[in-house]
Design a protein around this nucleic acid. Structure first.
Lengths: 226, 226
DNA sequence: TCATAAGTGGACGCCGCCGTCCGTTTGGAC
DNA sequence: GTCCAAACGGACGGCGGCGTCCACTTATGA
């Protein structure tokens, strides 16, 4: 927490400013987790015990705040890729990469939304980092295929597909980690070269209550959960 | 379109009112597809060529409008379940059910969001329809397992997991139907009892540009796509 | 043709969020 | 201890969406 904010903080920042910045990031994660990344900026400021002006001085846009708040998680993802590449068993590396990302999204509410929101980020910035990540992933995929563990028709973009769909699941069911684990297990099994089913984690307790399949079509406008 | 609105419309409605109601539903789908289900009500009204008052008279809450707008799709889902149950080959029924739902979400932008938003609907209403859907799905799953096509450890809630994650994917990449198809294919293969890989649809053209794995951690707050 | 009630639409007041401005406080250098 | 620039925070004007109210229009049936 402390070293995290100091990592982001300008070292030339005054002591109180640095402290406030740390508080803001903590508050932002809490508020975003609780109310989503569209929560009012003032709510974050209040939670952090600072004025709105202070918040806006550090983070001119909500987007900047979101990025900063989840920079740690993003970095963990990046590190997971590096570690995956370093693993002598490429499949194990691949598997851990995917599981790490999904676990992060499961734990840190609001991170999935930030992840998705940041996804089509076409700013030229970080271009080199992105390219490296893409290259690294391609290498990892090639190795895992060569090892006979990853199916031959797997495409690197499939990892993005898997992660994004997992994001959506977690966003829809923020407290159902069983569902998340279930999805991860299913996907990993379908990515394996030799198509053998392993054991699955226990299913979600999720009932189908409200599952829209149940619509009977006779509905009329009416007030509802609002 | 016409018969759809008449299905929903009170038959005692005056002719112009019925016409406007139809326009509203069409406009709502278009606007929700374009701007998401949180688009201003006034936008829907303008698009429909009616005043806001008319819109509010028919649909007191945004939620009511969303439900009505996508009632057709919901019903299609319900019908798909019935058809799946009627299919002599339970696996084919199951597969088609899942594919139909996903295709609907792919086609009708905004439907996934409506689907997810409606999901934890705990109003007592439609309870019987929901129960029936749940029961039907359970039967379908049991049959497909008995036929040796669906893996034995599949749980009915896994369909919800699959659908919700697909919702999330479509929401994140509204125009990438290749990604959606890929996910569906992966999931269906991992649901099969005999773990054999079939051919996959072509991968998404999605590059990893902006994939948050690429974060380099050196970032600072800054303006961005906003 | 006319009476009437159903239907319409836009103007309007309300509210919550945004982002800035400015008077006040405080850290830290000397 | 003194000073000042950095930092602070809250008040405030602006904006945009919400939902209602009411004077006007029109379908319908006698």
């Amino acid at each position: 927490m402390v070293e995290e904010s100091s990592r982001i903080a300008d070292p030339g920042l005054r002591a109180d400013a640095r402290r406030n910045l740390g508080r803001i990031l903590v508050a932002a994660r809490a508020v975003f987790a609780e109310h989503g990344i569209d929560a009012p900026m003032a709510t974050v400021a209040r939670r952090a015990g600072v004025g709105v002006a202070t918040l806006y001085r550090r983070f001119p846009t909500r987007d900047a705040l979101v990025r900063a708040a989840f920079a740690q998680q993003m970095e963990t993802c990046a590190r997971a890729l590096t570690e995956a590449l370093a693993d002598p068993d490429p499949w194990r590396g691949f598997q851990r990469l995917f599981e790490t990302i999904c676990e992060l999204q499961r734990q840190e509410q609001g991170f999935p939304a930030a992840f998705v929101a940041a996804f089509p980020d076409s700013t030229a910035e970080h271009a080199q980092a992105r390219e490296r990540a893409e290259r690294d992933l391609t290498i990892l995929v090639r190795r895992a295929k060569a090892a006979g563990a990853l199916r031959a028709d797997f495409h690197p973009s499939d990892l993005a597909v898997a992660v994004l769909s997992h994001c959506g699941l977690v966003a829809a069911l923020p407290h159902d980690s069983a569902a998340s684990r279930r999805l991860v297990a299913y996907l990993l099994q379908s990515f394996r070269a030799e198509a053998a089913h392993g054991a699955l984690p226990p299913p979600s307790a999720l009932s189908l209550r409200g599952f829209p399949i149940a619509a009977d079509g006779s509905q009329r406008q009416r007030p509802s959960r609002a």
